[in-house]
Design a protein around this nucleic acid. Structure first.
Length: 222
DNA sequence: CCCTGATTCGC
DNA sequence: GCGAATCAGG
């Protein structure tokens, strides 16, 4: 299976709707949960609460967020590549700091050609030029235009948002699978009617309703 | 053990 | 770019 636009859209939707990678993979079919996670990361989707937290120690330098930054450090570094460098990432603490050149503080703008060069040949950053704007994020939420609703009344997975009822109609994969799409009962993921189905008082066994459909179609019949 | 997501790295 | 293998926390 390849990552078509539709599959990617589905992945995005499900990812930020809280589905686990396993569920998403199962829903998409033909991919593993690893594939889903890998794709999600490549897409730049936001991280979600994971069991493993990157320990947020304390002093987190906002600018220097590079984690796998392999400091060039010593030029004659003997090549040694352990199979598991993951945990041993933080160790440098020795930037080989040479005496800072302290460029001309006078009003005269520094010439770019006057940058100092470190032992490894890398260009040192002057104090003033290491924090560019770094504001690539578009301020506005991009809303994909809806050119043609393929089906007028149907609410597809891609149409889900916080205001429409997410009650599944049918099963995923079926040609006419869609969602209720009515206005939600504020504070709930479903409309008033489907909230009535989703949230029921505990009834005596004798007249309990057996089939409570679950979001996204529930257990697939295969 | 199971689950989860994150990361790496060979392809 | 992809995803299996691996890691690591709950």
């Amino acid at each position: 299976m390849s990552w078509t636009d539709e599959r990617i859209e589905t992945l995005k939707k499900m990812w930020d709707s809280g589905m686990t990678a396993t569920q998403i993979a199962e829903e998409l079919g033909g991919v593993s949960r690893n594939a889903v996670i890998g794709k999600a990361h490549r897409l730049g989707l936001p991280s979600r609460p994971s069991p493993v937290k990157a320990n947020e120690g304390k002093s987190e330098k906002p600018a220097a967020a590079a984690k796998p930054a392999p400091a060039p450090a010593a030029p004659p570094a003997p090549p040694s590549q352990p199979k598991k460098p993951a945990t041993a990432a933080a160790a440098p603490a020795e930037p080989a700091s040479a005496p800072a050149p302290a460029p001309a503080p006078s009003g005269k703008p520094d010439s770019p050609s006057l940058r100092s060069v470190g032992p490894g040949g890398f260009v040192r950053q002057n104090p003033g030029d290491q924090a560019p704007p770094a504001t690539p994020a578009p301020p506005r939420r991009l809303v994909p235009a809806k050119p043609s609703k393929e089906i007028e009344g149907k609410t597809s997975l891609l149409d889900l948002n916080e205001r429409v009822c997410k009650w599944p109609m049918g099963h995923p994969g079926e040609p006419d699978f869609h969602f209720c799409g009515d206005k939600v009962n504020p504070g709930f993921p479903y409309c008033v009617e489907h909230c009535g189905h989703a949230y029921q008082a505990q009834l005596p066994r004798r007249d309990r309703r057996p089939p409570p459909p679950l979001p996204f179609g529930g257990p697939r019949v295969r």
